[in-house]
Nucleic acid binder design. Sequence first.
DNA 1: CACTGGAAAATGCCGC
DNA 2: GCGGCATTTTCCAGTG
Lengths: 77, 77, 77, 77
Amino acid sequence: MSTVSGEQLRSFIDRIERLEGEVQEIRNDVKEVYAEAKGSGFDVKVMKKIVSLMKKDSDEIAEEEAILETYKAALNM
Amino acid sequence: MSTVSGEQLRSFIDRIERLEGEVQEIRNDVKEVYAEAKGSGFDVKVMKKIVSLMKKDSDEIAEEEAILETYKAALNM
Amino acid sequence: MSTVSGEQLRSFIDRIERLEGEVQEIRNDVKEVYAEAKGSGFDVKVMKKIVSLMKKDSDEIAEEEAILETYKAALNM
Amino acid sequence: MSTVSGEQLRSFIDRIERLEGEVQEIRNDVKEVYAEAKGSGFDVKVMKKIVSLMKKDSDEIAEEEAILETYKAALNM
DNA sequence: CACTGGAAAATGCCGC
DNA sequence: GCGGCATTTTCCAGTG
C-alpha cells in the first residue's frame, strides 16, 4: 500500500491552510485601518459604503437604482 | 457646513483597497491549489470539507476555553 | 441539597428555546413569502432593500445620504 | 417602460412586515425571560452559552450526516 | 442560469 | 457610549 497520495493530499491542505491564514491576517489589518480612521473622526459605515461603491461598475449601480425606483413608485413611496 | 479631509480619507481608502486586493490574490491562489489538486485526482468537495472541519476543530478548542472562562467568571474565580 | 434552582433554570431555558423555535418558524414563513414573490416575477433583492428602507426613519436615511455625498465630494467621485 | 403590479407587491411587503413584527415581539419576550432569570440570580451569559451549546449539538447531528453524505458521494455509493 | 453552500459584511447586544 | 462578540443577513462562486 502506498501513502504517496496521502502525503500529496496533506501538502495541498497545508498550502490552503497557510493561504487562508494569510487572508485572516490581512482582514485584521483592514479592521485596524477602519479603527484608525474612526479614531480620526471618520464614519466607518459610510467608508464601507464608499469602498463597496468603488467595486461596482457605474452601469450596475444605475441599473439597481432604477429597479429600486420602479418598486418604490409602485408602492407610492 | 462640515468638511472632511479628502486627502486623509483617500489615504485610508487606498490602504483598504490595497489590502483587499491582496486578499483577492490569495483567494485566487487558493483556487489554483484546488484546481491543481483536482488535476491530481482529488475530490475538491471532500477537500473543502476537510479544511472546514479542521477549522472547526480549532474553533472548538477556542470555544471550550471560552466556555470555561465564562463558567469561571460566573463563579468569581 | 436543593434542586429548586436547577428546575427553575430548566424552566427558563425551556421558555427561551420554545420562543426561539417560534422565531425559526416565522423566518421560514418569511422565506416562503419571498419565494412566492420571486415566483411572481419580483426581484427579491430589491424587495429586501425596500423592507429595510421602510424600517429606517426618513431623517436617518437623509442623514446617511448627506454624509455619503460629503465623502464622495472629498474624494472627487 | 417596465411596470410592476403595485398591489401585488404591496401585499407581499405587508405580509413580510407583519411576520417580521411578530419576530420582534418574540425577541422581546426572549429578552424579558433573560431579564427575569437575571432577577432570579442566574447568570445571563452562562445561560446564553447553554442555549447556544444545545443548538450547536442539534446542528452537529445534521452536520455529521452531511459529512457522511459527502464521503458516500465521493465514493459513488 | 437558477440553486445551494460557504464566505463576508452588517447588525444588535452585552459588559465595561 | 464604545468596543468586542455573537447572530443575522447579504453576497458570491461553484454546480447541475
